[in-house]
Amino acid sequence: MVLEDFPFMADLMTSMLREFNVGKVITTCSVQGAQEAVNLRNINGPPLNHIDLVITDLLPPQEDGLKFMKWLRTHKEEPVSFLPILFCSAHASMRVVLSGRDTGANEILVKPLTAEKLAQRLLYIIDKPRPYIKSSAFFGPDRRRQTNSEQKVERRTLKPEDMKVTHESEAA
């Protein structure tokens, strides 16, 4: 599902996704429309009809895209709260990128939009899913990305006994 308030860019994004053969693309220009689509499909619809991925713009100036992401991540139903999110923005500032990350985006695409960038972000979401972190202050994909050997310092300061690790089972 694509949430974009500018029909021109929404059409362009949809056309690109169709060229990638991703299946059905739902486009909506408002947060309300996006919420209705998510509730309809991921709460009341069969799993086959679930929305698999949300692509949302920042939607300035009120930054409604972030509000929508927060709505998703705080939703009580798991088929909604765990939805992968690709957050797009023409704002390249650190504040916006960090807001996207801290609101629970799985990937961030800073515009301009190109087919290469879009394909790369989608493949990251599909191939490199990060575990979700649930704490009193945050819920969303693990914000630490560095997994190579250069990361020598463990920044997470919790003791192992304060962490609970859950693996979702197929039956869930």
Binding site: D52, L53, F82, P84, I125, I126, D127, P129, P131, Y132, I133, K134, S135, S136, A137, D142, L158, K159, D162, M163, K164, V165, T166, H167, E168, E170, A172
Partner: peptide, 14 residues
């Protein structure tokens, strides 16, 4: 100490 849960989900999209 803060309790943190690390949740590994099934990769449905994949």
């Amino acid at each position: 100490p803060e309790q943190v849960e690390i949740i590994h989900r099934i990769n449905r999209i994949k």
